[in-house]
């Protein structure tokens, strides 16, 4: 069924924020095509009336009390940051907008 193009792979890479190289585009296009062909098999038995299982264990209503727990310190929060400034994570300028 699938015949995934380089353009589609490029689009996926963009959605997934991966700056893939031209060479990777070719390799991935071929591999994704092959994998998707194989996994499309799930369609053979996925009849309309079969419910989807999203969770392996059928639990419901797991809630937490609204009680404050200890936080990380600012130092701990920022301990892994590639860059920090004034107690905040420093990142390159943001172009996009909030959704």
């Amino acid at each position: 069924m699938p015949n995934i193009s380089r353009e589609e792979v490029a689009h996926l890479a963009k959605l997934a924020r991966l700056a893939v190289t031209d060479k990777e585009l070719d390799v991935f296009a071929g591999q994704l095509d092959e994998i998707l062909d194989a996994v499309a098999k799930v369609g053979e038995v996925a009849a309309e009336d079969i419910p989807q299982t999203s969770h392996a264990v059928p639990l419901t209503n797991v809630f937490r009390d609204d009680a404050v727990q200890p936080c990380l310190s600012q130092e701990e929060a920022l301990s892994g940051a590639p860059a920090a400034e004034d107690g905040r994570f420093r990142v390159p300028r943001i172009l996009g907008e909030e959704q």
């Binding site: 792979v9 996926l12 924020r17 991966l18 190289t21 390799v27 591999q31 994998i35 998707l36 172009l95």
Partner: peptide, 24 residues
Amino acid sequence: SAEEVMSLTREAGFGPEVKRRIML
């Protein structure tokens, strides 16, 4: 920009199997 740095870092930081599965 942040967006470019994200994409370049993820490209550099992940190996081929991880990228393949993310795209899949």
